[in-house]
Design a protein around this nucleic acid. Structure first.
Lengths: 194, 194
DNA sequence: GCACTGACAGAATTTGGATTCTGTCATCCG
DNA sequence: CGGATGACAGAATCCAAATTCTGTCAGTGC
């Protein structure tokens, strides 16, 4: 079991496995230590508290779910098309994760919900990507926006229904992608110059 | 206690009082009957089940919270201004209710959350009001929209953050009204003719 | 010396026996 | 006869004793 030395990385992997198996309510630090073949005291050498460990897991998970976004942000497509594609990628990643394994998704919702600092940092990262797309659009004359970060955050707020996990129950609706398209239509027209 | 005959109306009032006092988890049909000075069997003469009673309470509450909206919908202000005012009225009604008595608000969130049919009907009513405002705007040349109900629903979806109770924890943020304004700016520009 | 262990205190969680609730219906009363 | 009652069965919920968990730290051994 203890193939190599104990590292934060190995602890995080074990913690994910335990959370997958037992869910957020029953997963304990003792379980994580047992899965690693060490005492739970050793886990506390690398993470200050159970909360810190769970925050780290939440952070890793968010990063993984958002992994495809930077490629869209950095693509060479025209900004309006890129913005729509980015929002669909974000929604798609969340929806697939949610529908693929609802129980595991529910677990991560709980973890992320407990880690407000992690959420804030993640949202800031998303706003930064949106800002880049919108700024490119302004440079190309596709968009006319006075305050780019403000518009970026507004776009994220306006699409909360399509990426905020609290709405995940509605993502099984077959209409959901059309609904996102309808919102995109409005937002893109709102960003265009007159 | 039993001033008049037992009516659905009186039962609903008593049920609200019991829910206010005990919360959604502890309020029972027996409590409601006791508050009315009747046996709980009598309550079942007017409501088929505890669930039906709670749905009726949820429906009443939603109607009360949305009471100010029709006046805005029917006002003579220009459609763009009316739309913004309508969205701020909706958000304001929800926010005041949530911040005024968070515990009671949490109670109603639970009730409404249990009654998906009530939610759907309420949303349809809101979409109908939005459709009327947008249709007026199209008639006046303030808006250019191909599919009015689709746009109306998109506006409601895009503002979920500002009226959906699942986001109520964020309504204490002093920035929230500015955020709604930023989203309104985008949506109104998206609706305007080019 | 450094990573790890395991016993410990106080807090949180589980458990299963006892209580309460929901929904029904035979019966009562005016 | 129409509206209300209260006893009842099965399901849900409560509660307090017993277990388990978190976080610490003096001590072990490699």
């Amino acid at each position: 079991m203890a193939d190599s030395t104990l590292t934060p990385e190995r602890i995080l992997e074990a913690a994910e496995e335990v959370l997958r198996r037992f869910g957020p309510a029953k997963a304990t630090v003792v379980d994580v230590a047992r899965a690693l073949g060490v005492s739970h005291g050793s886990v506390y050498r690398h993470f200050a508290s159970k909360t810190a460990l769970r925050e780290a897991v939440a952070d890793r998970w968010l990063e993984r779910v958002h992994a495809d976004l930077p490629a869209v942000t950095g693509s060479t497509a025209p900004a309006p098309e890129r913005l729509r594609s980015w929002l669909h990628t974000l929604h798609g990643a969340k929806r697939v994760t949610a529908l693929d394994d609802p129980e595991l998704f529910a677990t991560y919702i709980v973890l992320v919900g407990e880690a407000s600092a992690v959420i804030a940092a993640s949202l800031d990262g998303l706003v930064a990507q949106l800002s880049r797309i919108i700024a490119d659009g302004v440079a190309d004359g596709d968009f006319a926006v006075a305050d780019v970060p403000r518009a970026a955050r507004a776009v994220l707020h306006a699409t909360a229904r399509f990426h905020d996990p609290t709405h995940s129950a509605q993502w099984a609706d077959p209409e959901i992608e059309r609904q996102l398209d309808a919102v995109c239509d409005l937002l893109l027209d709102g960003l265009r110059p007159r």
